[in-house]
């Protein structure tokens, strides 16, 4: 199978500071790539660079006509913004020239109720807000969805529901997922490949092989409790 995305020697410098250096990875269609690394390791910058928000050196090679969707880590949405999800979704549909049926398919796929659609964005709960962002990302049927810690601001139950939802969408539409996550149990459960990032790529491969205690030491500067636990389970 051919790669849907290949990244070669990707380097990004912002305001003269090197954020990413010589990052390499590749994924095939329908794969789930987890990106892990300590704070400030460039995970968010990597996603934004893939989206074309930051200038870069090196190559980002996407399969032809690949569309991207994005679920950002956090949005400082003004609580008083008089905008609801319906406004946002319709705006995106208009910008991309989509039909009403596409909008309905996206909101149905993410199980968004009419009530949530018409609630001002700032009044949504953490879980509803994440769902809203995923619906926005899914609209237009992207081939790859980039998610930046999609559950950072919600409780554990909501978190599981969000990951289940992402998994469902992936199964249903064959979407390729690139997911930044702190939660290693999620990485082991869903990821087909993992990229360890600390400005540069520290590891890359299937999680069972790539995530060794040595890698964790290199990545976080200490042995990670979690990896022992999981490796004992294996």
């Amino acid at each position: 199978m051919s790669n849907i995305l290949r990244v070669e020697n990707l380097s990004v410098a912002l305001d003269g500071e090197t954020i990413l250096k010589n990052v390499n990875f590749e994924i095939e269609k329908g794969e789930n790539l987890a990106v892990i690394g300590p704070n400030g390791s460039g995970k968010t910058v990597l996603l934004k660079t893939l989206l074309g928000i930051f200038p870069h050196e090196g190559k980002i090679i996407r399969a032809e006509r690949t569309k991207l969707g994005y679920v950002p880590q956090k949005i400082d949405a003004d609580r008083h913004l008089p905008i609801d999800l319906e406004n946002l979704i319709n705006a995106k549909a208009a910008v991309l020239g989509l039909k009403k049926s596409d909008v309905k398919e996206a909101t149905d796929a993410v199980k968004i109720t009419d009530k949530v659609l018409k609630t001002p964005i700032g009044h949504l709960s953490g879980g509803q807000f994440q769902r809203a962002l995923i619906a926005f990302a899914v609209l237009g049927k992207p081939d790859i969805i980039l998610l930046d810690e999609p559950t950072a601001s919600i409780d554990q139950l909501g978190e599981e529901q969000i990951y289940e939802l992402i998994h469902e969408l992936q199964e249903k539409y064959g979407i390729t997922i690139i997911l930044v996550s702190h939660d290693l149990s999620i990485v082991y459960k869903y990821a087909t490949k993992v990229l360890c990032l600390n400005k540069t790529g520290v590891c890359f491969g299937p999680p069972e092989i790539a995530l060794t205690p040595e890698i964790f030491k290199k990545l976080y500067g200490q042995e990670h409790k979690y990896v022992h636990h999981l490796h004992h389970d294996h």
């Binding site: 934004k48 928000i53 950002p72 949005i75 905008i83 946002l88 910008v95 926005f136």
Partner: peptide, 15 residues
């Protein structure tokens, strides 16, 4: 439409 998405999030607008 572009303004609405942009004032919600410039990153989402860029995406």
């Amino acid at each position: 439409n572009k303004l609405i998405i942009g004032l919600f999030s410039e990153d989402l607008a860029a995406s």
